[in-house]
Computed example of a mutant assay.
Amino acid sequence: MGFLHLPGLGKAHFHEYGSGQKPLLAFHGYGMTGKQFHVLDQSVLPRYHIYGFDHFFHGESRLDGWTEQQILSGMPKAMVRSYMEEWFKLYGRQRFSVMGYSIGANLALILVEEYADMIDDIILMAPDGLAVFKGFHFILHNKLGRAIFRTATKSKWLAPFLVKSVKRVGVIDESLYKIAYNEIDTEQKRLDTYYTLNLIRQLKPDVQKVAQLINQHKIKCLLIFGKHDKLFPKSAAMPFLGMLDNAEVHEVELGHWLVTKALDEYLVK
């Protein structure tokens, strides 16, 4: 494990694991850390040496001197380049692969935009960034939605009420409800959620450009979706999938909570 000192941003903490030789930069889902992919010890870890990054407001990554106003404005997309440039300073300029689960897929996809000619493989699991998720768009880009999100962050009862309400109408299932509720049961957790989602609000990949680059550079592309995922289902990603020449796509009998031993066993088979 170690840190990348990202100019103008802060310290990005990463975990190293895996017995393979090929370097793979990995970005986890909300509420987890860069260790999340440890569970894929039969399928992914034997092939790659993983550098799993903690998102800011997760694990040991820390912003440096950012004001609340800066956080709410969001991290500029161009700053994602600094992950690779600082990583190259430590390990040398070389070919690499990327992996992203859920919100972490946004960073993986942006790295494809910037470094497609150096990327061997991209692995995406229940990926955000391939289509607009209306719920996130409302609370991050709509004036009313942003006001509700901020109010819910400060309230002990409103956030749990809203999560229960969206479960009741079927927007999320029981597993997502448990995950969401566990991340809002204290004021600090609610604030971390608020800051995390606002910080990444500008990190939206150009999916048409990404698809063109994957095809042009013949990047090996593996995409995995949960058949019961209500957040980022395969159906929402179909326009992107239709642009790819030769992607390997799987839909497994799981929900959004996808990075599990069950997935590891499926990939081995």
Rank of each mutant, 00 (worst) to 15 (best):
M32A: 15
L111H: 00
F133L: 15
F57P: 01
W157F: 06
G170D: 02
E265T: 14
S235V: 13
D120G: 03
S61P: 05
L25P: 08
D229L: 04
Q202P: 09
P233R: 11
V39L: 07
K220H: 11
Q94C: 02
G52P: 09
I123C: 08
M79F: 14
V252F: 09
G18R: 07
E187K: 15
G31M: 05
G65K: 11
L162Y: 00
Y51S: 02
E114L: 07
L9F: 01
S61Q: 07
R190Q: 00
M99A: 10
H141F: 06
G145F: 05
A236R: 15
V171P: 08
L144P: 08
S165E: 10
E187H: 13
K154S: 09
E265S: 14
A26W: 02
R168T: 07
F56A: 04
G255Q: 05
W257T: 14
K154T: 03
F138A: 09
G8L: 08
F88S: 02
L9E: 11
G145L: 01
M32R: 15
H55R: 12
M99H: 10
S165D: 10
M238T: 14
A108G: 08
L63W: 03
R81A: 09
Q21G: 13
T260C: 03
L176K: 14
L258R: 09
T193N: 14
T153V: 03
L111G: 00
F88T: 00
E187G: 13
K234G: 05
K89L: 06
S19W: 08
L263N: 10
L111N: 01
L9T: 12
P160G: 05
L191P: 07
R47Y: 07
N246C: 10
M238R: 15
P239A: 03
I123Q: 05
F136H: 11
K134P: 09
G242H: 10
Y177H: 13
Y91F: 12
A247V: 01
Q42R: 15
E187S: 15
E253Y: 11
L72H: 11
L258E: 07
N246Y: 09
M118Q: 08
T260F: 06
G2A: 04
Q212K: 15
N106G: 12
E114F: 03
E251H: 12
D117V: 00
L25G: 07
I50L: 14
L191Y: 12
L109A: 00
K269H: 13
E183Q: 14
I139R: 11
R95C: 04
K227E: 10
I139P: 03
V169R: 15
D54A: 08
G242I: 07
E251S: 13
Y17P: 01
K204P: 10
L197Q: 12
K143W: 13
R47H: 09
R168A: 10
A180V: 05
L263S: 08
F149P: 06
V80M: 04
G18T: 00
M243C: 06
I179R: 14
A159Y: 12
K156L: 03
W257E: 14
I219F: 01
F240M: 06
